[in-house]
Design a protein around this nucleic acid. Sequence first.
DNA 1: CGATCCTATCGAAACGGTTCGATATCAATG
DNA 2: CATTGATATCGAACCGTTTCGATAGGATCG
Lengths: 337, 337
Amino acid sequence: MATIRDVARHAGVSISTVSLALNGTGPVSDETRARIDAAVAAVRYTPNLMAQNLKRGQSKLIGMVLGDAANPFFGRLFGTIDKHISGHEHMLIVANLASDPDRELRTLTLLKRHRVAGIIMTPLRNDPEFAAHLNELDVPVVLVDQDVDGTALDFVTSDHRRGAEMLTAYLARLGHRRIAYIGGQRNMWAAERRLEGFRSAMAEAGLEVDPELEIVADYSADLAYDNVMRLMSSPARPTAILAANNYMAVGALQAVTDLGFRCPDDVSIAGIDVVAWNSIVMPRITTVEQPIDELARVASLWMMEHVRGEVARIAERRCHVAEPRLVIGHSCAPPPK
Amino acid sequence: MATIRDVARHAGVSISTVSLALNGTGPVSDETRARIDAAVAAVRYTPNLMAQNLKRGQSKLIGMVLGDAANPFFGRLFGTIDKHISGHEHMLIVANLASDPDRELRTLTLLKRHRVAGIIMTPLRNDPEFAAHLNELDVPVVLVDQDVDGTALDFVTSDHRRGAEMLTAYLARLGHRRIAYIGGQRNMWAAERRLEGFRSAMAEAGLEVDPELEIVADYSADLAYDNVMRLMSSPARPTAILAANNYMAVGALQAVTDLGFRCPDDVSIAGIDVVAWNSIVMPRITTVEQPIDELARVASLWMMEHVRGEVARIAERRCHVAEPRLVIGHSCAPPPK
DNA sequence: CGATCCTATCGAAACGGTTCGATATCAATG
DNA sequence: CATTGATATCGAACCGTTTCGATAGGATCG
């Protein structure tokens, strides 16, 4: 592969002159510039970014760590962030955790070895050991969707608590009293916020939470299916089910359908963050949507500010909390008499 | 950030010894090794991959170019490829074309500047100019899903033609004679194969294709919606609709539903590659599924063979054609009397 | 006309590693 | 005891750039 030396030789100038000409730094006569351009084309020169970055001390690479690439939420998040980032001749190194928290530390280390200019991530873990690693990483990080307690990193999220509140309050207004909640892992930040929102809205509506109806299903459709099967087979079954993410809403609807119940006639179902294909799900599920584009825009913007050194590393952490949007579908109705 | 020099100074040895010890190349006494390990921990040394790669002449980065990150097909493809690749301490630089063919060349150039060890891509363009660029790129490339005529690059795909044939034949067996086909862009490789499959299966069944019922909707849900609205409003409306991808199947079902028709009673709908949420779409759409995991596995395997130099650049191109799977749902029935 | 200042170009030193060819030490060999 | 061969370590060159300081020629100035 052609190097800058080949260009210099071909154009009959020194390599420093080639560098000056190509980067537009330093004065170069028009005639020399023309000869260099011709040489570049002749030897098919493509600057070696690894060498440039090594010399400049910073790479034009930004790490992105996704919780689960198969989930459309992350696909849209990545796509939109890529749109913003790639305009600045940067590129994204993307790693997929596949919902496995054990891969998280190893992934961060690998990204650091690549000397990425920054990392945008949706963390899975939220514990002191992980927070310590994050703090010692010495690379700008913007967290998206999930916070990590004990760090002072920029954080962009939608208001998970408020989203759960909106849906719960909506179900309560319809007259439901026995509302089941299918939640995510207990130690994950967003899951905790959603659970808080559910509980607070229940209390606000003067309703009691039956511990039997508060399920932890780890964001998995299968676990949600099994649990809803069990719940709905009990005589004290709920009249409404609130699922904390899109997968679990799918699992819940499937279980309800398989048991021969009709939704929303026999039981109402609402879900958080049911994206994309929701438009053709019958019945269309009532949901709160996360404003993914807004999250991506702010995260990219802040990351580029870090990369350009426009924000001091020690500066106070920034938080952006986006408002979720309640989308009424046809999966909720007043409870059966 | 600590360099190998810091480690050497701290351990009281030369930098070459540190390198030999850390890479396990060359003999190092146990005592020295221990001192070096201690020094690494003390100065918090992380090897600079940019420097290593520069010296070694090859990066541990593999480029991945996605047609449209928001489409779950690409999310799952990326996730599975990442699983295979990252086991070999490689990482993926991912770029999203967002269905815009104009970004394709620029993206490839940028990846080449990063000196990626190889590129896995789902191309959008299929024209001689693009093929020429690909041939001159001088980087191992594995194409997935879409071929580019005029190149001899490794190619992994599912049998698009056969998938369309299976669905068409299925509809014909149910008794449909007026079958509409909603296709993708005419110049895209996979779209052409699917169209071929539709036509061949129609001929095979002794059915005539009404040119009015062969629609090009560019893989867009909105265009499919508009076109199906028009088709179904005509007196000579079809009794079955075959959509060439998941988005268009959704658009078609939506249009049919909005017009007050019932599926499958009034009109049957089948789609290619309706993934993920299909399990709760009511009615569940009959579809052929692409074996994404198989595509990802073979593509990763071939790429790693290229990276390790196990396959000559001039070798004959390899093609892997995976068999799609017909998944019968509830969206198809015999035509109304 | 000598001093001063651009302008255009160049040589050489980095950047942070790897690796090849010394060198030094020491036990085994004939 | 001189030779040989491991074993452990080191110095220096190199990967492909950027960039700083130096140089040389020509125009401008007092």
